[in-house]
Design a protein around this nucleic acid. Structure first.
Length: 161
DNA sequence: ATTTACAATATGA
DNA sequence: TCATATTGTAAAT
């Protein structure tokens, strides 16, 4: 598993790559993590560039032209279905937890969808921030509500009080 | 092996 | 408005 840093105006993200693709993305944490300096195979160097570009575009409210391969193999089947549904939400659009539940054929599993969103290893590129509670309020966010609001604002979405 | 806690929501009192 | 059943996972007991 290779770990690289991605410097952006918004801060320094940390990307984890498996041999299958991008497996995890961490928000800037304030403290610098030690990253073992290792030789990166060509595949990883390319994925790193794709990830950075996709992040830049998404953080500025644009559709990412290309995404690196995402390795979601660590997730349960249920989680993978939720994450798949999330990726179908367009830039600047939102859905509710209940709608996601319905979209994957389990209309009563809204709460479980919330759990799956929290377990999402690749925030931003898998847009867990575009999911709101049914009454229009924000819900929650594992990396902090501040980030969720910021991401939504960059896409022109205003949240109900 | 059970119980509990979550980033929900529809329903009935 | 409040209590409860439902649902998938992980973590605690």
């Amino acid at each position: 598993m290779h770990v690289t840093r991605i410097r952006l105006p918004a801060g320094e993200f940390t990307a984890h790559f498996s041999e299958r693709g991008l497996a995890r993305l961490d928000f800037p944490s304030g403290k610098q993590k030690l990253v073992p300096r290792t030789e990166a195979p060509d595949d990883i160097a390319r994925w790193h560039r794709l990830t950075e570009e996709a992040l830049r575009r998404t953080l500025s409210g644009k559709e990412p032209a290309v995404l690196p391969p995402l390795d979601v193999s660590a997730g349960t089947p249920f989680q993978q279905r939720v994450w798949g549904a999330l990726r179908r939400i367009g830039v600047g659009r939102t859905m509710t937890y209940g709608q996601i539940a319905g979209a994957i054929g389990k209309p009563k599993a809204a709460r479980a969808v919330g759990s799956a969103c929290g377990a999402n290893p690749i925030p931003v590129l898998i847009p867990c921030h575009r999911v709101l509670a049914g009454d229009g309020s924000v819900g929650g966010f594992s990396a902090g509500l501040k980030w969720k609001e910021r991401l939504l604002a960059s896409e022109g979405i205003t949240v109900a009080r």
